[in-house]
Structure formats: C-alpha cells, structure tokens
Simulated scan of single mutants.
Amino acid sequence: MIQRIPGVPKPLEKENPTSYADSPFADDIALVEIPKRFTVPHMKQYDRLSDPQEHIAQYKQRMFTVPIPREYREPCMCKGFGSTLIGPALQWFVGSANGSISMFADLVDTFNLQFANSRQFEKTTSDLYKVYQKYREPLRDYLTRFNREKVTITNCDIPTAIEAFRIGLEKDSPLYDELTKYLCKTMDDVQAKAMAQIRLEEHKREDDDKYYRPNRKITSIRNKDYKNDNKPYARTIRDEQHVNSSQIRPYWRRDPNLPPTFDSYGFSITLTVLVKEFAKLGDVVKWPAKTNKPKSNPDSKLWCEFHSDYGHKAIDCVALRREIEALVKKGYLTEYISSHRSNHVRTEKTPANLPLPPPHHKVINFIAGGSEMCEKTYSQAKRRARGKGIQVAHAEVVI
C-alpha cells in the first residue's frame, strides 16, 4: 500500500541472514579458494561511461602479469572482476542472479551486452575528413591533431588519409599547392614536406619576433586602486602636468600633503564615538552635503559614519581627517586627547629662552699644506701628506 502512494520512496528491505553467501557465480567458481597472495592489479574502475570492451582488454592484460596457478586462473579472474567496477556497474554486478555465471566467458558476454550503449564504434579512414586546419592555426598543431586521429584507425587506407590531409589544409597554404601539384604515395612523403614547411614558417616567425618587439612597459596610467569612480567620495589623484605613460603615479595614501591620521592624535575614544560627538558641536562641524544618488553596494563592508554612505571606511575618509584637524586647531575635542600625543599633531609650542651665541669679531682664512709646501699640485700634496701623516686641509678660524 505504501508503494502505491505517489512520491513516497520504497521502504528499506531487511537483509537476508544468508546473504553473505550470495554470488553470481556457479559453485564451480564460488567454492574455489583464492590463493592467499593473490591481489587484483590496480587499474581504473569502470563506471559505465567508457567502452566496456576496452575495460575487459585492460583487465585481461593486468591479470596476465599476476602469478596465478593454471587451475586457479579462471576463478581468480571471475572473482576479481567485481573489484574493478564502481557506481552503476557495481550495482548491476551485485544484483545479478545467484549462479548465473559459470565461466569467465559468460561474464564478459553479459558485461558487454549490459553496457553496449557505452561502446565506442571503430573509426574508419573517412573520419579523417572531419579533421581540418583551423583559421590561423600553425601547421605543426594541425599535423599533430591529424596524426593523433590517424593512429586510432585500424587498417587505415593511405591514399584516403593523404587526400584527407590535403583537403584539410587551408586553401592559401603553400603546402596545399605543393601536395596538389606533386602527389605523394606514402605518408612519409607527406610528413617530410609538412615538416619542411613547418621549419620555414617557424623561421619566418622568429625573424618577425626578432625585428618587431612591442614595448611591453607601456601600462595604463590609472592603477587598479583608481577604478573606484562609481563609488561615492572615492579619492583619485589628477595630475595636471604631463605624466610619462611608463610611470604609475604613487598610491594616494602616501601623499605627504594629506591631513594627519586618526591614530596620530591619541584619542581616548573610538572613531565611531568621535563622529557621534560631532553632532553635539552643531554648526561648528562642516558635514558633507547629502546626495540623491542611491547607496552603492549596500552589502559592502566599506561604511563611512561621517558620510553615512557606503564606498569607503571611516578610517580612510580624507574629509573626516580634515575636519578633525580643523576642530583640533580651534580648540575642540581636546578633552578626548590623551597626554601622550604623537608628533604628527600640528601644535604650536613657544621655544625656550636659550642664550644667544657669542658675536663674531674677525674671520681668518688659512691653508695648511698644498702646492707651496712641495711645489706640486694639490692632489699630489694630499697623497704625499697622507703617507707622512700630515693633515692637508682648508680651515677657517673664527675669533
């Protein structure tokens, strides 16, 4: 009754206590004890998507490399085949009727019949006409693809393959004209002419690259940090002078003319609380003008409390830093500044009363050493004096 209800899954059935002995093989195979040292060779497991005949051939070749006695070879090949299956193929193997397989040939026939839809049909020589040279494709790449398809064809007809290779070439290719005028009888002749044309094309390409080298140093003046024009209040640097296209302007945060940062003041409150304190000052604070533009990217984490909008963080807001600098100069917000203030804060201090330096009465200039002491040039006199430990210098004495 439950199975008749639409949309309800089939209830789980209880496992039979003797299900551990279930096997799709007959007793002649199921009752044979496998040698202790027997292990199935490692290979790619079959999941019904690839060719079943190719899987059987690979399984046979792997099993031939395992040392198995002759009387145990067929039972071992039958019992080890299930470990090479996965997914729907394994479910089919487990769900087979008990005792339905009596030999390995029956297993292969049933396996190929079950997964016949995944079988890959044998290619013919006429399939090579589907391989053609693409637009501006190098001849070497086309030759590689053609040879890769040709190898998969058994009993390939050589004249048909040569004709398919010629037709697949571009019509303006010199090799197409060469193969049309002088017919080839073997693929070796076609390969030789194709390699000669490939060497010629690659040589010309190397010469073109040698004499034509584009300037790769030319980059865009705008950096990725300046691609924020769609964000409100995004800062960009516009240099009025001529800027060389090979040089990128420095990052805007490193501009020395910017106002001091919030951390340089040594405030005892956070930046969010400081913005709330601006509301108590009233018209003293120059609040930014409100815009009618919709809020950009509401899901972004870049929120500015001073502008009350998305686009950048308050710690990076240049307008907020300028307003803090102006209020500190006017004497506001001083109660929130700690005693240990940074040197970046622009404050005016009266210099201490220091004693004046003594006045200059007379200046006497003299020369120690030189050309007069050894009648040589000044440089030679320095080398001579350096060897004897004499100091040659120009001095000025202030009295």
Rank of each mutant, 00 (worst) to 15 (best):
G7K: 05
P9I: 00
K10A: 07
E13R: 11
K14V: 04
N16R: 05
S23Q: 03
F25W: 03
F25V: 01
D28N: 15
A30L: 04
E33G: 01
E33Q: 14
K36F: 13
T39R: 15
H42Q: 13
S50E: 11
S50L: 08
H55M: 06
Y59G: 02
K60H: 13
Q61V: 09
M63Q: 08
V66H: 02
P69A: 13
R73M: 09
R73A: 09
R73Q: 08
E74K: 01
G82T: 12
A89L: 01
L90R: 11
V94Q: 15
S96W: 06
A97P: 04
A97K: 12
F104C: 00
Q114S: 06
S118I: 00
R119G: 08
F121D: 06
T125P: 01
T125D: 08
S126Y: 09
L143W: 12
L143A: 15
V151D: 13
V151M: 12
I153V: 02
N155A: 10
I158E: 15
P159M: 07
A161N: 04
A164K: 02
I167C: 10
I167E: 14
E170F: 11
L175Y: 03
L175G: 01
D188S: 11
H203S: 14
R205I: 03
R205K: 11
D207W: 13
D208K: 11
Y212D: 09
N215L: 05
N215E: 12
N223F: 00
D225V: 06
D225Q: 06
D229N: 10
Y233C: 05
R235E: 13
I237L: 14
I248M: 09
R249C: 02
R249D: 07
P250W: 03
Y251A: 04
Y251P: 00
Y251C: 01
S264V: 05
Y265G: 01
G266W: 07
F267A: 06
I269A: 04
T272E: 15
T272M: 13
V273W: 02
K276V: 03
K276G: 14
V285R: 05
A289V: 11
P298K: 05
D299Y: 04
K301L: 12
E305L: 04
D309M: 05
G311P: 02
I315L: 15
D316T: 06
D316I: 01
A319Y: 04
A326P: 00
L327W: 05
Y336A: 03
Y336S: 04
S338N: 12
S342Y: 05
S342I: 03
N343S: 14
R346E: 14
E348D: 10
N353P: 03
L356Y: 12
P357N: 07
I364A: 13
C374A: 14
R384C: 10
K388M: 11
V392M: 14
